[in-house]
Design a protein around this nucleic acid. Structure first.
Lengths: 144, 144
DNA sequence: CTCCATGCAAACTATTTGCACACGT
DNA sequence: ACGTGTGCAAATAGTTTGCATGGAG
């Protein structure tokens, strides 16, 4: 569910980066935010706890994390969201009508990943896939 | 491959929107751009052909198209891209190292979509799915 | 002829950058 | 002590909005 703090700290150090309180707080915050957040949402929450932390620091940290796969980026209806790169598969179904996000773990994604690797030589980041569409209630309502 | 112009024009009208040269040019341009582009890239190209067209117009058109499923949005390594909603399935594998985008049409996505509908009641926009990961050459090089 | 869509300009929000200082190693 | 990371401020880029005019239906 949440990231392994020891692991995060260790990996940062291994890569030659410094483990600062800012980076730790930003990572912790993203974890607490239940899977996905925009940079702005992360900043707001971090700022509540430590007003001295600047937006630029949040941007720099998130970019660093993204570069090294601590977090992933995803499009949620035109907005870029970031989420912890879980060890547990953690996919998202995003409804384009009600904006609802359904999280699920499903082995069918693994089949797809296997297939993409074998047939297309592509190594998918299969632990985090975002799919857009309509949730059941919205599908009922719309019927286009 | 390219969008059906008649269809686009007709649908716009059906929905009660006006078919303006600006909207047509923006849609044509996106089509010519081979599947995916940022709003800025679209604007640049439109602007070359018709310098009078304003950025605001491009934003408004793309949002309109997105709202009515003429185009889809997708995250390409943290950047929001837009692409024509093809009738042909048209998926993207985005390499997070070299930024290469592999387009493919593959029935395995259909299996996944069927499964999501049956098991999770979710109606995926299966004609356009973006998956992140490493392409074969980058996978070779990295080995982390 | 009637309104919707556009262009323009300005406001607003998001993101990046340079620099001096602070602090993790 | 060294050099990376941070805060600050300013610059740049991205997006939205109000309003008067133009043009599609």
């Amino acid at each position: 569910m949440s990231h392994n703090k020891q692991n995060f700290v260790q990996k940062l150090r291994e890569l030659g980066y410094r483990v600062t309180p800012q980076r730790q707080l930003i990572m912790d915050t993203l974890c607490e935010m239940g899977g996905h957040a925009t940079i702005n949402q992360i900043y707001e929450r971090v700022h509540d706890q430590a007003p001295a932390i600047d937006r630029a620091t949040v941007y720099r940290a998130i970019h660093l994390f993204h570069e090294h796969q601590f977090v992933h980026s995803a499009d949620f209806n035109g907005r870029t969201m970031y989420e912890i790169a879980e060890t547990q598969p953690h996919h998202h179904l995003v409804c384009r009508e009600c904006q609802q996000v359904i999280s699920l773990s499903d082995h069918h994604f693994d089949y797809l990943a296997d297939h993409l690797r074998r047939e297309h030589g592509f190594y998918a980041d299969i632990n985090h896939i975002t799919i857009h569409g309509l949730c059941a209630p919205c599908q009922e309502r719309v019927r286009d």
